[in-house]
Design a protein around this nucleic acid. Structure first.
Lengths: 335, 335
DNA sequence: CTGTTAGCGCCTTCAT
DNA sequence: ATGAAGGCGCTAACAG
C-alpha cells in the first residue's frame, strides 16, 4: 500500500525510531527534526499501520458497542453520544447489533475477548437471562459498561435513566387524569428496564388502593402484540389507561385503538417511553417519557474511557442515573 | 491477557505453525490433531490476536461505514442490512457519523487510508461539494462503495433507489389528486438525492404545463426550515401540494400546518420520502415514498465484499438501483 | 538528541 | 503431517 515508517526514515536519513518519536511529539527530539519529519510525512500521506502499533502497544484505540437494535431512536441517539465522545478521544467504534438474539450476543462477547477492543459498551438483549458471558468478559479484565438495559452486577458500571421514578410519575399522571384501571405493556419480564418501570407503576399505585393494574407481556413481534392488546381492549372491564414501556408498544396500541374505534384520550389514555420527536404529530399527539438518550450514551462512553485510562471511579459514577422527563400531550389529557 | 498461540502449542506439545494450521482447517493436518487442537482451544477460550494476524496478512476483516447521521430510519435500516451481511462474512463494522460535516468526512477518509479497513461504505454529507478525498481514497486502491447519497463517479460503485422514477410517481400522485402548485422541499442543492428527486418532479410536470412548482432549499435546522415553510404557506398564491425530499421536512411542514391551521389534505396535500412506519399514525396519516433501506445496505455491502474478494463486477452491479414504493395515505387523498 | 536491537503474535515459506 | 525460521511495521528499552 502506501509508505511505511522505515521508508520514511530512509528518505530522511534517520532511524525509524527517531521518526516514530518525532511523529508522536516526543520531548527528546529536536524541534528541527520534528518539523522535517512531519513535513515529509504529510507530503507522503504517511499513516502508521494501526495493526503494527496495536500489536506492539497492546492497545487498539477501538471500543465496541453492542445494542439489541439500531432502528430505534433511543439507541441511535445513544450511539450518537457514544460516537461523539469516542471521536474526541481519537477512538474508533465497532458496532454490533444483536437483534435481541442471546446467542449472537454471547458470540460477539467471545469474539471480542482477544484485544480487538480496549473496552465495551452494551445494552442487553431482551432474550438474555444468563449473564455468564458478561461475567467472564469482565473477569478477563477488559473494561465493560452497560447502559439502559443493564446487568445489575456490582462489577459492571452502568448508566440508566431513573426508570422507577419516571414510571411512577407517568403513572401518577394517568391517575391524575382519572384512570382507574391501568394496563402496563411490558417488553420482556427479565429486562432491567421492564422490572424497574413496573416497579415505578406499583409505587404509584400504593396510595391508590382502588386502582387496578394489569401487565401484558409483549414481544418483538408487532402482530402478536396487537393480538394481545386487542384482547385486552375487548374485555368487559377494559383498562382506561395504558402505560407502554417502549414506544413500539404504544404504536401497537394506537393501531388497535384505530381499528376498534376507541377514542383516545376520551375512553383510554396512553403514555409511553419514547425518544421519537414525531410522536407529537400522532393522532392524538402521544404523551411521552423522554430519556436523555444522547447523554446516556455520552456518559457511558466517558465512564468507559475512565476505566480504560485506569482511573478510579467514584461511587456515583459506578451506577449513574440520569433523569427522564414527561412530555404530556393530548393522548393522556384529562377530560 | 488470555492465552496465545505459542502457549497453546506448548500445552499440546506441538509447533505453533501446526496449531495455526489446525485451527484454520488446513488439509495438511491430521483429523486427529485438528480435533485435539480445537478442543483445547475452545476450552481455553483461545482467540487469535487480530492485530498480529492482520499485520501478517494485510487484511483487517473490518469494513467502515460512514453516514451523515444515524438518528434517521433510512440510515439505521441500511446499517442493519450492512451489519447483517458483514456478520455473515465474519467481518467487523466500524461506524463513523459525519453529522453532515465535510471536514469530519474528509478526516475520517484520511484516517482510514492506512489499512485499518478492507473497504468502505459511504453516504455523503450534504455539505460535501468537493470529492477529492473520495478520489484519492479510491486511488489508494481501497474498495469503496457509496449508497443513497452517492458520488457520481465511474470509479465508484453505488447503490441507490430509483429516485427519479419514485419522485415522478409521487408528483403524478399529487397531480392526480388535483394539485396545481407544488412545492418541493429540498435538502441540499448539491446532493445526488436532491437533484434526482427534483428531476423526477420536473419529468412529471412536463405533461402538465399549467402546473407550477417552487423549490425550497431547506437545511438541517428545524427552526429555519419552519420559517421558510411558514413563509411559503402564508403567500397569497400558496401551494396546494408539498413533496418533501426527506421525512424531516415533512415533519416541519406538518408542524407549520398545525400552527397555521391549514387543513391537510383539504387545502394542502403532502407526500414525502420516509422510512418510518409510525408516519401511519400521523394526523393525518402521511403518504410516503418508502425506500428499501435495508436492502440498499445489504446490496451495498455485498458489492463491497465482491470488490474486497477481487471479483469483477458486472455492469448492472456498478450502479445498482432498487425500486421504492409509494404508500398513499390520507395526507395526499383527493377530495 | 539519535541510533541499534529486540520482540509484540501470527502466518507462510521452506525444510524434513 | 509436522517443525523451524523469518518477518509483517511499529515502538520501547537500552546505548551512546
Amino acid at each position: 500500500m502506501s509508505v511505511n515508517l522505515k521508508q520514511l526514515a530512509k528518505a530522511l536519513n534517520l532511524a525509524p525510531s527517531t521518526v516514530s518519536r518525532a511523529l508522536r511529539d516526543s520531548h527528546e527530539i529536536s524541534a528541527d527534526t520534528k518539523e522535517r519529519v512531519k513535513k515529509l510525512a504529510a507530503e507522503l500521506g504517511f499513516e502508521p499501520n494501526p495493526f503494527a502499533s496495536s500489536l506492539r502497544q497492546s492497545k487498539s484505540k477501538t471500543i465496541a458497542v453492542i445494542v439489541p437494535e439500531i432502528e430505534n431512536n433511543f439507541f441511535s441517539q445513544a450511539m450518537n453520544g457514544i460516537e461523539l465522545v469516542a471521536q474526541q478521544k481519537g477512538y474508533h467504534v465497532l458496532i454490533y447489533i444483536t437483534h435481541e438474539n442471546f446467542d449472537r450476543e454471547k458470540s460477539i462477547l467471545q469474539l471480542l475477548r482477544n484485544g480487538r477492543v480496549d473496552g465495551l459498551l452494551i445494552s442487553i438483549s431482551n432474550n438474555t437471562k444468563n449473564f455468564d458471558h458478561l461475567d467472564e468478559y469482565v473477569h478477563a479484565g477488559v473494561p465493560l459498561v452497560s447502559f439502559d438495559r443493564v446487568y445489575e452486577s456490582a462489577a459492571i458500571p452502568s448508566v440508566t435513566t431513573d426508570d422507577v421514578t419516571a414510571a411512577r410519575k407517568a403513572t401518577e399522571h394517568l391517575l391524575a387524569g382519572g384512570c382507574r384501571h391501568i394496563a402496563f405493556l411490558s417488553l420482556a419480564e427479565g429486562l432491567s428496564i421492564s422490572s424497574r418501570r413496573k416497579q415505578g407503576l406499583q409505587d404509584a399505585l400504593k396510595k391508590h388502593r382502588q386502582v387496578t393494574a394489569t401487565t401484558i407481556e409483549c414481544s418483538n413481534d408487532d402482530e402478536s402484540n396487537r393480538i394481545l392488546i386487542r384482547k385486552l381492549l375487548q374485555q368487559k372491564q377494559r383498562p382506561d389507561g395504558i402505560f407502554a414501556a417502549v414506544e413500539k408498544l404504544a404504536v401497537n396500541a394506537y393501531e388497535v385503538c384505530q381499528e376498534l374505534k376507541i377514542s383516545v384520550p376520551g375512553k383510554l389514555k396512553i403514555i409511553s417511553f419514547s425518544n421519537s420527536a414525531s410522536t407529537a404529530l400522532f393522532d392524538p399527539p402521544l404523551s411521552t417519557i423522554v430519556q436523555p438518550a444522547r447523554e446516556i450514551g455520552e456518559e457511558a462512553a466517558k465512564i468507559l474511557f475512565k476505566l480504560i485510562d485506569k482511573k478510579v471511579l467514584i461511587p456515583s459514577e459506578k451506577k449513574q442515573i440520569l433523569p427522564s422527563f414527561i412530555n404530556a400531550r393530548k393522548s393522556s389529557a384529562p377530560k
